[in-house]
Amino acid sequence: MNKRAGIGFYIFLVVFVFFVMFPFIWVFLTSIKPPGEIFNNFNWFTANPSLDSYENAISRRPLFRYMLNSFVVSTLTTIIAIGFASIAAYALTRLPIKFKGLILGIILAASMFPQIAIISPIYNFVSDMGLRNSYMGLVIPYITISLPLSIWILATFFKKIPWELEESAKLDGATPFQTFRKIIFPLAAPGVFTTGILVFIAAWNEYLFALTINTADSWRTVPVGISFYQSQFTIPWGDISAATVIVTIPIVILVLIFQRRIVAGLTSGSVKE
């Protein structure tokens, strides 16, 4: 469908982008207002921009510690999950295995399991292992969530790699593992990388497990940490806005750099080609 884009279309586009971005714009504008101004008017722009809210946001709560926790947990999760998943996905798409459909079905079903249905046994397990308030305490359950999904997405990417290369590698006497390492992996690297980004974002955003398992303030991740800025009596909207801006920046950068890959990863699991 190659319709030409007219002026009306661009107006629609601008309005659309504005509505989608509006919460971010408003939160950013709030974050640079002096805290006193937030509560008495709805002016878009302040005459006296200030960084007070930013100072409060990082001094009242260990925001950078939250970001470090999130980063470590997400990175570990991504590496471990992708490691296991790429081997499994390769085997599922390439090797002659019985009941592939069934196995993939189980994997897809597992990726849709409601977290609340598995949280209490996992909580007991993590407590028994003494892993509460630690990085591994979150990485283990996160692998739970991300492994099925990454196998599913990786399987789609691996299917696109031509069979012939493998056939010729086999003729030259390569073992399946050698084929995987020397031929498939370099070709599959973009897909693996894309899946890695999705797993990373999913782990970065997870809330329920982070809330229950890491209850000590210094082990909280960004989503949980942010939600604890409000106390029972006051809601410091200035601090919250500033904190929101700070934690959103890394994600915006990630999205800007990898947007094509993210879209490819998101749509690969759902659209047949």
């Binding site: 919460p23 971010f24 939160v27 974002i201 970065w204 955003n205 809330y207 960004v222 989503p223 949980v224 942010i226 939600s227 800025y229 409000q230 919250i240 929101t244 934690v247 959103t248 994600i251 990630l254 999205v255 993210i262």
Partner: peptide, 11 residues
Amino acid sequence: AIPTAVAAMMW
């Protein structure tokens, strides 16, 4: 891409 909890705080 932003965490749901962050979006919820914004809203």
